[in-house]
């Protein structure tokens, strides 16, 4: 009996929270999309300018999309544009002003409806679901649930919240400019790039075969691999440092090319690729890590 009362309490709280949401005019969108061939692993492509993307694997066949729109901070250009518009408005002539007043009179006692959600488009074609947000609309926080085996292609620019992915086994391609990239319980292959953000990737397991590559300009790269992973690391960093608790055998770059011997005079030259190579457990999946200033952390999973 007690638990029922408690449950009821929770439900009421949730409902109240929903009301509060409405009161604050937070606009949300909800959509469920199916892949045309659910038996085969599908692909989810999301490309947004401002906002964040969170993707979670779940035991289902559909893709569930929840969008929360938020007031975005206007860019400098847009602020100037708005200011210019406001100035123009002051110079409106008498006739225009009268019209505006009449319109305000008509709307008395009514509230304005937001039609902002038209900015979100979702398309499905040949097992690829594309989610796009029209430019110039408000920022959006997307929470998307996908089947575990889905491949992801996520791009998020100009926002500090970035991209988070949890429990997805498909191939993951992520790109952010400012925000961080946080991947947990993934198995790869992962191809990630961030200009100013950090990249954190925790692998539950690592599938052999396909190569991976993570790159960051200023941020750190922090990856956690299973203790028994077989991997060949290729690390390049200009100003960053490399840390690890794995027993990594570092070798000078082994990729070398010898000049063609047939050349006149028998010219002979050996060139080396400029990278540090390290083998974990004898080597295996190729993982390339590139930073400019950021540090690189290679952790062993507990």
């Amino acid at each position: 009996m007690k638990t029922i009362v408690r449950l009821a309490g929770i439900i009421i709280l949730l409902w109240a929270a929903g009301l509060a949401d409405n009161a604050q005019d937070v606009q949300t969108d909800h959509a469920v999309v199916s892949f045309s061939n659910p038996a085969k692993p599908g692909t989810l492509e999301v490309d947004i300018n401002e906002g964040s993307i969170t993707v979670r694997g779940y035991e289902g066949k559909d893709v569930i999309i929840d969008a929360r729109w938020r007031e975005r901070i206007l860019t400098k250009d847009e602020q100037e544009e708005l200011a210019a518009l406001a100035e123009e408005e002051e110079e409106l002539d008498e006739e225009e002003m009268a019209r505006k007043r009449a319109q305000a009179e008509k709307a008395k006692g009514m509230k304005k409806l937001e039609v902002e959600s038209a900015g979100l488009t979702i398309e499905e074609e040949e097992n690829v679901i594309q989610v796009n947000v029209e430019e110039g609309k408000r920022a959006v926080d997307l929470l998307i649930q996908v089947p575990f085996s889905t491949s992801l292609q996520l791009s998020c620019r100009d926002d500090e919240k970035g991209v988070a992915v949890d429990r997805v086994d498909g191939e993951i391609e992520v790109e952010t400019s400012e925000g961080p990239i946080v991947l947990t319980n993934v198995s790869g292959p992962v191809i990630a790039d961030s200009s100013d953000g950090e990249i954190k990737a925790v692998f539950g397991k690592v599938l052999p075969g396909k190569p991976m590559s993570l790159s960051a300009m200023d941020g750190d790269i922090d990856i956690t691999l299973p203790a028994d992973v077989k991997a060949s690391l290729k690390i390049k960093t200009d100003e960053g440092q490399i840390f690890t608790d794995f027993d990594i055998r570092l070798t000078p770059s082994q990729q070398k090319k010898e000049e063609d011997e047939r050349k006149e005079g028998g010219g002979y030259r050996v060139s080396f690729e400029k990278a540090t190579l390290g083998l974990i457990n004898g080597g295996g999946v190729e993982i390339q890590l590139t930073t400019y200033e950021g540090n690189i952390y290679i952790r062993k999973a507990l």
């Binding site: 391609e173 790109e175 191809i191 990630a192 790039d193 590559s213 993570l214 790159s215 990729q255 070398k256 090319k257 000049e259 030259r269 060139s271 690729e273 400029k274 990278a275 390339q288 590139t290």
Partner: peptide
Amino acid sequence: NVNVRLAAVDALYLFYN
């Protein structure tokens, strides 16, 4: 993809002659 382009720079380095 940036990562693929980065890898291409490295590969081309081997053939710069």
